[in-house]
């Protein structure tokens, strides 16, 4: 809780056989910062996120979470991490309460604290009246909320969300964005998305990835000062790269 830098990734690479999925990613995030990760499909966003959460080992490079090395001390480092993958990891035949209690136990929350945390998190994610519903019967939007609840139940220092607003209706998207903004006040958040306006409205910083490397990294305030259009930059950078490759 002391260090200002919550997540630090240096020269992280990942190959699948001879295919290079991610190459030399450098990433530094401070407490209270929300980072938006943009990029066309297959740019390596999900691979990067899976590496940052210890689901995938990098081929090279180092990752530190709150000053703890993720590779040599995975369990301690993961205590500070919350992760919502692209497909929410939900057990369809558990109720919302059962699932969240399991997630809380997995993240080593003390038994006497669980009840209180559970109420807090359900209120935050708007799940109060769904406690006893089976997850399998919930709509996509509510399932997404349960997924987010699972990622933040242990109040982690780093929250990593892979396309958190996919499949939600406009109202829900607004609520989730508000929630992410709130989370960004106390923790660091990394989120990937395809919606450029989302990044402009909730992120402090934006990184654009293409073909496994970061091609653009700037604070949103700077962007606004320069009055440049994120969409233009995105198209230029990513399409330019892909075209050049094809030639």
């Amino acid at each position: 809780m002391t260090s200002a830098t919550t997540i630090l990734a240096q020269n992280v690479c990942r190959n699948y056989g001879s295919y290079v999925a991610v190459c030399n990613i450098n990433l530094e995030l401070k407490r209270g910062e929300v980072l938006g990760l943009l990029g066309p499909n297959g740019a390596g966003k999900s691979t990067t996120m899976r590496m940052l959460t210890g689901n995938l080992a990098p081929s090279a490079g180092s990752i530190e979470v709150c000053g703890i090395d993720l590779l040599s001390n995975p369990q301690e480092a993961k205590m500070h991490l919350g992760f919502l993958p692209e497909i929410p990891p939900l057990y369809q035949d558990m109720t919302v309460d059962e699932y969240l209690v399991f997630a809380a136990r997995l993240h080593r929350i003390d038994t006497y604290e669980i009840g209180q945390k559970l109420d807090g998190i359900k209120q935050r994610c708007g799940l109060e009246d769904r406690s006893r519903h089976l997850i399998g019967t919930l709509s996509k939007g509510f399932q997404q909320r349960v997924g987010i609840a699972q990622a933040i139940i242990h109040s982690p220092d780093v929250i990593i969300l892979d396309e958190p607003t996919v499949g939600l209706d406009p109202n829900q998207i607004r609520e989730i964005r508000k929630l992410i903004r709130e989370l960004g006040n106390s923790s660091s958040v990394i989120l990937s998305t395809h919606i450029l306006s989302e990044v402009e409205s909730i992120c402090d910083r934006v990184q654009i990835m293409c073909k496994g490397s970061v091609v653009f990294d700037q604070a949103i305030t700077e962007l606004k000062q320069q009055e440049t259009n994120l969409e233009m930059i995105f198209t230029q950078l990513t399409q330019g790269l892909i075209k050049r490759d094809e030639d």
Binding site: T53, G54, N55, P74, Q75, E76, K78, M79, L81, F83, P85, I87, P88, P89, L90, Y91, Q92, A103, L106, H107, R108, Q150
Partner: peptide
């Protein structure tokens, strides 16, 4: 059902 990710990202 992709729930293995939940276990793998947890401190366990």
């Amino acid at each position: 059902y992709h729930t293995l990710t939940l276990l793998m990202s947890a401190p366990i």
